[in-house]
Protein backbone atom coordinates (compact mmCIF):
# COMPACT_ATOMS: atom_id res chain seq x y z
CA UNK A 1 0.00 0.00 0.00
CA UNK A 2 1.31 3.43 -0.88
CA UNK A 3 2.19 5.59 2.12
CA UNK A 4 0.96 9.15 1.81
CA UNK A 5 1.92 10.63 5.14
CA UNK A 6 3.93 9.02 7.88
CA UNK A 7 3.90 10.70 11.25
CA UNK A 8 6.49 9.67 13.78
CA UNK A 9 6.60 10.85 17.37
CA UNK A 10 4.46 13.93 17.03
CA UNK A 11 4.73 15.87 20.27
CA UNK A 12 2.98 19.09 21.19
CA UNK A 13 3.45 20.84 24.50
CA UNK A 14 1.50 23.96 25.39
CA UNK A 15 2.54 25.83 28.52
CA UNK A 16 4.36 22.75 29.88
CA UNK A 17 1.34 20.57 29.26
CA UNK A 18 1.55 17.63 26.83
CA UNK A 19 -1.31 17.93 24.38
CA UNK A 20 0.02 15.33 21.93
CA UNK A 21 2.38 12.69 23.25
CA UNK A 22 4.47 10.69 20.77
CA UNK A 23 1.76 10.24 18.18
CA UNK A 24 2.81 7.92 15.35
CA UNK A 25 0.35 7.30 12.53
CA UNK A 26 0.63 6.36 8.88
CA UNK A 27 -1.93 7.32 6.26
CA UNK A 28 -2.15 5.09 3.21
CA UNK A 29 -3.58 5.84 -0.21
CA UNK A 30 -7.16 4.67 -0.52
CA UNK A 31 -7.63 3.99 3.20
CA UNK A 32 -9.80 6.72 4.66
CA UNK A 33 -9.53 7.19 8.39
CA UNK A 34 -11.98 8.22 11.11
CA UNK A 35 -10.42 9.92 14.12
CA UNK A 36 -12.33 10.35 17.35
CA UNK A 37 -11.79 10.84 21.05
CA UNK A 38 -13.46 12.38 24.05
CA UNK A 39 -13.18 16.07 24.92
CA UNK A 40 -9.64 17.50 24.89
CA UNK A 41 -8.12 14.28 23.55
CA UNK A 42 -6.02 16.27 21.04
CA UNK A 43 -8.04 15.90 17.84
CA UNK A 44 -7.98 19.54 16.80
CA UNK A 45 -4.36 20.01 17.86
CA UNK A 46 -3.44 16.99 15.72
CA UNK A 47 -5.13 18.49 12.68
CA UNK A 48 -3.48 21.86 13.29
CA UNK A 49 -0.08 20.14 13.37
CA UNK A 50 -0.90 18.34 10.13
CA UNK A 51 -1.73 21.70 8.57
CA UNK A 52 1.69 23.08 9.57
CA UNK A 53 3.64 20.16 8.06
CA UNK A 54 5.50 20.42 4.77
CA UNK A 55 4.61 17.28 2.82
CA UNK A 56 6.32 17.94 -0.50
CA UNK A 57 5.81 14.56 -2.16
CA UNK A 58 2.03 14.63 -1.94
CA UNK A 59 -0.77 17.14 -2.32
CA UNK A 60 -2.57 17.68 0.94
CA UNK A 61 -5.67 19.61 1.95
CA UNK A 62 -6.56 20.54 5.51
CA UNK A 63 -9.91 21.98 6.53
CA UNK A 64 -9.94 23.06 10.15
CA UNK A 65 -13.00 24.12 12.08
CA UNK A 66 -12.18 27.80 11.62
CA UNK A 67 -10.83 27.66 8.04
CA UNK A 68 -12.50 30.19 5.79
CA UNK A 69 -11.90 31.80 2.42
CA UNK A 70 -12.65 35.47 2.46
CA UNK A 71 -11.89 37.34 -0.72
CA UNK A 72 -13.80 36.87 -3.92
CA UNK A 73 -16.82 34.87 -4.95
CA UNK A 74 -17.35 31.12 -5.13
CA UNK A 75 -16.73 31.38 -8.88
CA UNK A 76 -13.43 33.22 -8.31
CA UNK A 77 -12.19 30.51 -5.95
CA UNK A 78 -13.17 27.54 -8.07
CA UNK A 79 -12.34 28.66 -11.60
CA UNK A 80 -8.61 29.07 -11.08
CA UNK A 81 -8.38 25.62 -12.61
CA UNK A 82 -8.90 25.59 -16.40
CA UNK A 83 -10.30 22.06 -16.52
CA UNK A 84 -13.94 23.13 -16.49
CA UNK A 85 -15.33 19.59 -16.77
CA UNK A 86 -13.57 18.66 -13.57
CA UNK A 87 -14.88 21.81 -11.89
CA UNK A 88 -18.47 21.48 -13.18
CA UNK A 89 -18.94 17.99 -11.77
CA UNK A 90 -17.72 18.97 -8.31
CA UNK A 91 -19.77 22.18 -8.25
CA UNK A 92 -22.96 20.38 -9.24
CA UNK A 93 -22.46 17.57 -6.77
CA UNK A 94 -21.85 19.91 -3.84
CA UNK A 95 -24.68 22.25 -4.81
CA UNK A 96 -22.35 25.21 -5.16
CA UNK A 97 -24.08 26.27 -8.39
CA UNK A 98 -26.79 27.77 -6.12
CA UNK A 99 -24.23 30.14 -4.59
CA UNK A 100 -21.96 30.47 -7.62
CA UNK A 101 -21.87 34.25 -7.65
CA UNK A 102 -22.07 34.70 -3.90
CA UNK A 103 -19.23 36.40 -2.07
CA UNK A 104 -17.34 33.94 0.07
CA UNK A 105 -17.77 36.15 3.13
CA UNK A 106 -21.55 35.74 2.91
CA UNK A 107 -21.56 31.94 2.76
CA UNK A 108 -23.13 29.87 5.52
CA UNK A 109 -20.81 27.59 7.48
CA UNK A 110 -22.16 24.58 5.57
CA UNK A 111 -21.57 26.19 2.18
CA UNK A 112 -18.11 27.36 3.22
CA UNK A 113 -17.30 23.75 4.14
CA UNK A 114 -18.49 22.58 0.72
CA UNK A 115 -16.49 25.33 -0.99
CA UNK A 116 -13.32 24.25 0.81
CA UNK A 117 -13.94 20.61 -0.12
CA UNK A 118 -14.59 21.62 -3.73
CA UNK A 119 -11.39 23.65 -3.83
CA UNK A 120 -9.28 20.69 -2.73
CA UNK A 121 -11.05 18.19 -4.97
CA UNK A 122 -10.47 20.44 -7.96
CA UNK A 123 -6.83 20.75 -6.98
CA UNK A 124 -6.79 16.92 -6.96
CA UNK A 125 -5.21 16.54 -3.56
CA UNK A 126 -4.03 13.07 -2.58
CA UNK A 127 -5.25 13.35 0.99
CA UNK A 128 -7.80 15.60 2.66
CA UNK A 129 -8.01 16.22 6.40
CA UNK A 130 -11.31 17.58 7.73
CA UNK A 131 -11.71 18.49 11.39
CA UNK A 132 -15.32 18.01 12.45
CA UNK A 133 -16.95 20.28 9.86
CA UNK A 134 -19.08 17.64 8.18
CA UNK A 135 -20.93 17.15 11.48
CA UNK A 136 -22.87 20.31 10.72
CA UNK A 137 -24.43 18.70 7.65
CA UNK A 138 -27.38 16.32 7.71
CA UNK A 139 -26.44 12.66 7.88
CA UNK A 140 -27.53 11.87 4.31
CA UNK A 141 -25.51 14.78 2.94
CA UNK A 142 -22.51 13.88 5.06
CA UNK A 143 -22.53 10.27 3.86
CA UNK A 144 -22.95 11.41 0.27
CA UNK A 145 -19.96 13.74 0.48
CA UNK A 146 -17.74 11.18 2.21
CA UNK A 147 -18.53 8.63 -0.51
CA UNK A 148 -17.92 11.22 -3.23
CA UNK A 149 -14.52 12.16 -1.82
CA UNK A 150 -13.55 8.48 -1.68
CA UNK A 151 -14.86 7.92 -5.21
CA UNK A 152 -12.57 10.69 -6.43
CA UNK A 153 -9.64 8.69 -5.03
CA UNK A 154 -8.87 11.18 -2.32
CA UNK A 155 -7.93 9.65 0.99
CA UNK A 156 -10.11 11.29 3.61
CA UNK A 157 -9.05 11.71 7.23
CA UNK A 158 -12.02 12.95 9.23
CA UNK A 159 -12.38 13.78 12.89
CA UNK A 160 -15.71 13.87 14.69
CA UNK A 161 -17.36 13.15 18.01
CA UNK A 162 -20.29 11.52 16.20
CA UNK A 163 -19.41 7.84 16.50
CA UNK A 164 -22.07 6.85 13.94
CA UNK A 165 -19.84 8.31 11.22
CA UNK A 166 -17.14 5.75 11.99
CA UNK A 167 -19.14 3.22 9.97
CA UNK A 168 -18.33 5.10 6.74
CA UNK A 169 -14.61 4.53 7.23
CA UNK A 170 -12.50 1.38 6.96
CA UNK A 171 -9.93 2.53 9.53
CA UNK A 172 -10.34 4.20 12.88
CA UNK A 173 -8.11 5.96 15.40
CA UNK A 174 -9.16 6.82 18.93
CA UNK A 175 -7.22 9.52 20.76
CA UNK A 176 -7.21 9.84 24.50
CA UNK A 177 -5.31 12.50 26.48
CA UNK A 178 -2.96 13.13 23.58
CA UNK A 179 -2.06 9.53 22.76
CA UNK A 180 -3.36 6.95 20.30
CA UNK A 181 -5.44 4.77 22.61
CA UNK A 182 -6.43 2.31 19.90
CA UNK A 183 -6.34 2.14 16.10
CA UNK A 184 -7.21 -0.43 13.51
CA UNK A 185 -9.92 -1.60 11.13
CA UNK A 186 -13.10 0.09 12.25
CA UNK A 187 -15.05 -3.06 13.10
CA UNK A 188 -12.12 -4.39 15.14
CA UNK A 189 -11.84 -1.14 17.08
CA UNK A 190 -15.60 -1.01 17.68
CA UNK A 191 -15.46 -4.58 18.99
CA UNK A 192 -13.34 -3.29 21.91
CA UNK A 193 -16.50 -2.27 23.71
CA UNK A 194 -15.06 -2.21 27.23
CA UNK A 195 -12.04 -0.10 26.28
CA UNK A 196 -14.15 2.35 24.33
CA UNK A 197 -16.56 2.70 27.26
CA UNK A 198 -13.64 3.40 29.59
CA UNK A 199 -12.48 6.10 27.18
CA UNK A 200 -15.93 7.64 27.24
CA UNK A 201 -16.67 6.65 23.64
CA UNK A 202 -20.07 5.24 22.79
CA UNK A 203 -20.78 2.74 20.03
CA UNK A 204 -22.78 3.23 16.85
CA UNK A 205 -26.36 2.20 17.57
CA UNK A 206 -26.47 -0.84 15.31
CA UNK A 207 -23.14 -2.13 16.62
CA UNK A 208 -24.27 -1.66 20.22
CA UNK A 209 -27.58 -3.40 19.50
CA UNK A 210 -25.79 -6.30 17.76
CA UNK A 211 -23.44 -6.77 20.70
CA UNK A 212 -26.37 -6.90 23.11
CA UNK A 213 -28.30 -9.30 20.85
CA UNK A 214 -25.22 -11.50 20.57
CA UNK A 215 -25.08 -11.70 24.37
CA UNK A 216 -28.68 -12.92 24.31
CA UNK A 217 -27.69 -15.50 21.71
CA UNK A 218 -30.00 -14.00 19.11
CA UNK A 219 -27.32 -13.18 16.53
CA UNK A 220 -24.12 -14.90 15.52
CA UNK A 221 -21.91 -11.84 15.13
CA UNK A 222 -21.78 -8.04 15.30
CA UNK A 223 -23.55 -6.32 12.41
CA UNK A 224 -22.92 -2.82 11.10
CA UNK A 225 -25.84 -2.83 8.69
CA UNK A 226 -29.49 -2.73 9.85
CA UNK A 227 -30.69 -4.73 6.83
CA UNK A 228 -28.31 -7.61 7.44
CA UNK A 229 -29.15 -7.57 11.15
CA UNK A 230 -32.89 -7.58 10.46
CA UNK A 231 -32.50 -10.34 7.88
CA UNK A 232 -30.57 -12.53 10.31
CA UNK A 233 -32.99 -12.01 13.19
CA UNK A 234 -35.96 -13.15 11.13
CA UNK A 235 -34.30 -15.57 8.77
Amino acid sequence: MEKLIEITNMNVKLNNRKVLDNISLTFFKGVSVFITGSASSGKTTFFREIAKRQDRKIKKGVILEDTIIEPGTVRDVLTQDDDYNNVADVIAFLGLDKVWLSKCCTLSYENMTKLLIAKYLIQKVDILFIDRRLQFLKEKERKRIIEYINKRQVTLVYSSSNIEDSLYFPYMVVLDKGIVAIEGKTMQVLAEEKLLKRLGIGLPFIIDLSIQLKLYGLVDKVYSDKRKLGKYLWK
Partner: peptide
Protein backbone atom coordinates in the same frame (compact mmCIF):
# COMPACT_ATOMS: atom_id res chain seq x y z
CA UNK B 1 -24.98 27.17 19.91
CA UNK B 2 -24.49 23.61 18.67
CA UNK B 3 -23.18 22.60 22.09
CA UNK B 4 -23.99 18.93 21.44
CA UNK B 5 -21.62 18.78 18.44
CA UNK B 6 -18.47 18.86 20.49
CA UNK B 7 -18.90 16.21 23.15
CA UNK B 8 -19.29 12.43 23.21
CA UNK B 9 -22.51 10.83 24.43
CA UNK B 10 -21.30 10.22 28.00
CA UNK B 11 -20.14 13.83 28.36
Amino acid sequence: VNFDMYFMEKE
